[in-house]
Structures are given as structure tokens and as C-alpha cells.
Design a protein around this nucleic acid. Structure first.
Lengths: 193, 193
DNA sequence: GTCGTTTCTTAACTTAAGTGAACGTTTTGA
DNA sequence: TCAAAACGTTCACTTAAGTTAAGAAACGAC
């Protein structure tokens, strides 16, 4: 299972066996059940997550309704706002499926950074890359209709449509579950005709 | 005019007079006319911008239509994707108003970082802060209707509604100019009744 | 200043998303 | 295992945004 983590790290830096052992010795792996809440609104958690297997999501509750804003699957890293700005979280994080992930916090990262300066380089690269990716996602969302967003998702992350409940997907696309049903029926109709 | 730049930097690190002089000696200040294009689709620019006075925007052209995705005003910094991922730009950057800004590139930054290691710390902090801010903006956009987005903008950046043309604002809100007109009329009507 | 362009608004009509409700299916937990 | 809850789809109706078109106002170039 750690292999996924090391494969991910390999995209940024090269690890020696010694360094791999050091990471394994820290015991940061956690297994969490579907539906578990990793972070609640109002909490001031210091934990960052990296998904090895499974799927987690971030969502707000606005006027009593869940608004899912992101899904994180294999090889996705998530550092919540509250960790960065040290304020209570505005949103929730929960498990869409049974999930295996690593949990780390700023203290642990500082410790690893001190031992292996390489890590700091990796973090900077990841930050840059993530910022660029976010911006592109944001632009894609803003410049598309719900139907286009659905079709884009079908291209870019087809697995999500299978593993995520419809109402969470709908919310992620910015519409109601009924509209997603209708939209899919509309697309099927077009394909036939 | 440099004072704006130094005020901005002061939010992250403290500069000595010597350091300020070093920055002033680099001559990175530029004055650009309203309507000027700073970056075009397809270009591989290395330039980052920091707005001292005025307003610039990023926009895509999709099916012949401009889609404005962001406005940058006083004290906003903009590092285009193409600088980070070294690929041709997908979008344009142009001046909404006559604008004074600083232009820098990775080489210059490396040079300054070598002279003044403080700068690297500042850049990391800015990156983190920017990522968090972006995420919040994105979430705000995704969880709102066009009308709510307009009202939010009225709260958070009322100056934009004055200084930016309606059709660019509409596009930024994810709707057509006609819909923005209608939406504003609707809100006025509600306020009266 | 004037002509032409761009910008903003209004209106009528079309299309798609929101709403409320019904109904069958799946999931879940006691 | 069985009842309750949650989920997905469909429908009829409402609301808001897209589209097309027209006209008024602001802006720019000459």
C-alpha cells in the first residue's frame, strides 16, 4: 500500500531506501470507513491528508443543504484551509468510500523537513503545481454550462461517475439531483437521435 | 508609487533600506495603456505581474466569445500558468484601465532570492495564502447562483462594479450581459417593494 | 463636433435549471 | 430480516438564464 505513496513522491523527488524506511517508521497510515467525518465545520484541525485508496470529499452545508466542492481519490493530496489560515474550518471532509490515507500535520512535516531537506523542495513544487491545477479547474468550471461540466467530467474522471452518489455529483456540478437526471436523459436522447 | 509595492511586501517580511534600494535599482515598473494586451493565447511568457495602480483581467476566447475569469487590482499579484507549467498560455491578459505595474520573471526572482533569502520565504507564504484564497473563491462561486455572486461582489469588491464594463462583469459572474442587466433590475425591484 | 463603434438596456421568446411531489429501488441499522 | 430511511428518476409547474433583435447612450477617432 505504501507503494502508492512512494510512486507519488517519485514524481517530485528521488528517495533512498533509508529515506523510505524513515517514512515507514512514522506510521501515518490510517484506514477510515465510508461515511466517516474527517473534519467538521468549526474545527481547527492541523491534519493534511493523502489518499492511497478510496475517495473523500469536501462539502459545505448551506441553508441545510450539502454543497460538495471537491473529490479526492488515489494520489490526491488535501491540505484543508483551516491548516493554512489557522481559522475554524468552513467545511466538512468525509469519506465517500472506505478509504486508506496518510495523515500528517505541520509538526511532523517540520520534523521530516529537518531530517530530509528534499521534502521542502517537493512541497514547494506540489504547491505550485496545485495552484496551477486549481486555477485551470476553476476556469473550466466558470466557462462551462452544467451539461458541459458533466461531459468534461465524463472525459477527465469517468471513475467518479461510478463511485460517487448522484446527489453528490449533482452538487459538485452546481445543480440539483433532479436536474442531473434530466441532463443525462437529455444527453442519451441526443446520442440516439 | 513604489510605496504601494513596499506596503505590500511589508505584509510578509521587513525590508531594510538597503534592500529597498536594491529593488528600486532593478527598474521593474511599467506603465500600460487601457486595452493593451500583456499576454496572448499561445505565448510562452515568463513574466509575472504586480498591480500598483489600475486593473487588469484574464480572459479566454471560447467560441469567439470572451470569458473573463479574474480581475487584478491594486496590491494583486498575478503569475500566469504558462510561467509555471512552461506551456503556451490558454488565455489572454489585458488592461481594463491605464495601469502601473511591476513586471518580473523567474530569472530576476532567482537573482533577488540569491541576494536576499528573505524573498524566498515571502514567495512561499504568498503561494500558500493565494492557494487558500483561490480555493475559497472557487467554493464561493460554485455554491452560489449568479444573483448571489453579484451580491457577494457588491460586498467584497464594490469598486469593481464601477470600474469594469458590464459585459466583462457579466462574463466574470458566469452570465450574459443581458442577464446581468435583468438581474440588476430584478434586485432594484425587490429593494423597492 | 460628427460619424461610427461599442456598450448598455429592454423586450419577446426559447431553453434549461429549480421546486414540490410521487413512486419504485437500494441501503442501512436495529 | 424487516421496517425505515435514503436515493434516483420522472412529472408538472415555476423561475431564471440564453437568444435574438432593436434602440438609446457613451465613447473614440478623425
Amino acid at each position: 500500500m505504501q507503494d502508492i505513496l512512494f510512486d507519488f513522491i517519485a514524481k517530485y523527488i528521488t528517495l533512498t531506501d533509508e529515506e523510505k524506511n524513515a517514512i515507514n517508521s512514522v506510521d501515518i497510515f490510517r484506514s477510515v470507513k465510508k461515511g466517516s467525518i474527517l473534519l467538521s465545520k468549526g474545527q481547527r484541525s492541523k491534519n493534511s491528508y493523502f489518499v492511497l485508496k478510496g475517495c473523500i470529499r469536501t462539502y459545505y452545508i448551506i441553508d441545510g443543504e450539502e454543497k460538495t466542492t471537491a473529490f479526492y481519490t488515489e494520489m490526491d493530496a488535501l491540505t484543508p484551509h483551516c491548516v493554512i489560515n489557522k481559522a475554524p474550518s468552513d467545511y466538512y471532509i468525509s469519506c465517500v468510500e472506505d478509504t486508506i490515507l496518510t495523515v500528517s500535520n505541520l509538526d511532523m512535516e517540520a520534523e521530516i523537513n529537518a531530517k530530509f531537506p528534499k521534502f521542502e523542495i517537493m512541497c514547494r513544487k506540489m504547491s505550485e503545481e496545485l495552484l496551477a491545477k486549481h486555477q485551470i479547474d476553476f476556469d473550466g468550471f466558470k466557462t462551462s454550462s452544467p451539461e458541459q461540466r458533466y461531459l468534461n467530467l465524463l472525459q477527465s474522471r469517468p471513475d467518479l461517475l461510478q463511485r460517487v452518489p448522484q446527489h453528490q455529483l449533482a452538487s459538485y456540478l452546481g445543480i440539483k439531483p433532479q436536474s442531473l437526471s434530466r441532463l443525462r436523459a437529455r444527453i442519451l436522447e441526443k446520442d440516439k437521435g
